[in-house]
């Protein structure tokens, strides 16, 4: 009986996917994701990969900002640290990609730890500024530490390989990205329903009350910074291996804002929400691109006026959306699910 939420059995209650119904749809969705690369064109696969990197980074940022309540304006910089770490380890030290990837995460996590230290003393806007400073410091380092980063010219990165099999096409890389996304989302989803994740949320909601139940604020804030930066680092390393080059231009302040927007549009404090947010923020501009291109073509409109207009449309979409659903895409999803959960008795 699929009617509301009446479970006597709390073992069942602890599961994420609570019914066969949900498991069925999830299975179907996974099957689709696996078939997708065989039916999609390279452009769609390129976008899918980009969505994948965005999902990983956004889920990471959500752990920090959405769950722990520490706003960061430097997330792109940590992705950059990961990207450069992977690039340098692979090209200079002959690391295999598979070893460089976790290393990129770890180095980014260490950077996150350092940047997270002020979070014990400063909160809110002040912490915002501290992370903003981190963004610009790292950008500066990427540009000016020429001996390591090759400045604005950047570093060429070889594609990952398994034996002699190169992951050098969108399609081949897609499977790696998909695997990493599943790992990243699964880990986050589990983390937030166990002790550490609960401590994060407690700190966000009421740090005084968190302390009296024995949560070490400093330790968990730093943990959150480290995990979140680890995610960014991994996303960065995947991304540069996909596009096969890393330059400072790939990790601008603008990208940090975009990550933050993904988390907010998707829904703060919802892992699934950041997945939606990342898809939305990556996909919608691409769709608008295609649409505006087509419109300019068919109506012989001036592309000078029309192409920039898509930025305006995109911005307005976000604003309108946040006005009508401040809790983000996750909340819309919850309502849709609730509708079907009670269906056909929902009214």
């Amino acid at each position: 009986m699929r009617c509301g939420d009446f479970k006597e059995n709390y073992i069942k209650d602890e599961e994420i996917f609570q019914s066969l119904f949900v498991k069925f749809w999830l299975g179907l969705f996974l099957a689709f994701l696996l078939i997708f690369p065989f039916i999609a064109n390279p452009y769609a696969l390129y976008v899918s990969n980009m969505i994948g990197f965005a999902v990983i980074a956004a889920v990471g940022l959500n752990l920090l900002t959405g769950f722990t309540g520490q706003i960061s304006l430097g997330h792109a910089a940590f992705a950059g640290v990961g990207g450069y770490t992977a690039a340098v380890l692979i090209t200079r030290f002959d690391f295999s990609f598979w070893l460089a990837l976790p290393c990129a995460g770890v180095v980014a996590a260490l950077a996150g730890l350092v940047i997270g230290i002020p979070s014990l003393r400063v909160k809110g806007l002040y912490l915002c500024i501290a992370t903003l400073a981190a963004q610009f410091i790292f950008e500066f380092i990427f540009i000016h530490w020429e001996s390591i980063t090759h400045g604005v010219r950047g570093i060429n990165v070889p594609p990952p390989r398994i034996g002699s099999f190169l992951l050098n096409t969108e399609k081949r890389f897609y499977f790696l990205t998909l695997f990493m996304v599943i790992l990243a989302v699964g880990y986050a989803r589990n983390l937030v329903r166990t002790r550490v994740g609960r401590a994060f949320v407690a700190i966000r909601d009421r740090d005084l009350a968190a302390e009296i139940i024995g949560i070490n604020l400093f330790r968990y804030k730093l943990t959150s910074f480290a995990i979140s930066s680890f995610y960014a680092g991994v996303a960065g390393a995947l991304w540069v291996s996909f596009i096969r080059i890393v330059t400072p231009e790939h990790f601008p302040f603008h990208l940090s804002i975009q990550y933050l927007a993904m988390v907010i549009v998707g829904g703060l404090g919802s892992v699934l929400g950041s997945v939606f947010g990342a898809i939305f923020m990556t996909l919608v501009p691409e769709i608008l691109n295609v649409l505006s291109g087509a419109l300019v073509e068919s109506f012989k409109l001036s592309s000078q006026v029309f192409i920039p207009l898509k930025e305006v449309v995109f911005g307005s979409l976000i604003v309108v959306f946040l006005i009508f659903e401040p809790l983000g895409l996750a909340e819309i999803w919850r309502r849709v699910k609730a509708f079907f959960l009670l269906w056909p008795f929902s009214y």
Partner: peptide
Amino acid sequence: LGGHVHLKSGSIAGGIYFGKARNEEM
């Protein structure tokens, strides 16, 4: 949340969930 100081699983066990963290949570 009250059980914070008595539970053991950290960021790694918690993220993997199955095994240690799950038993403890149950």
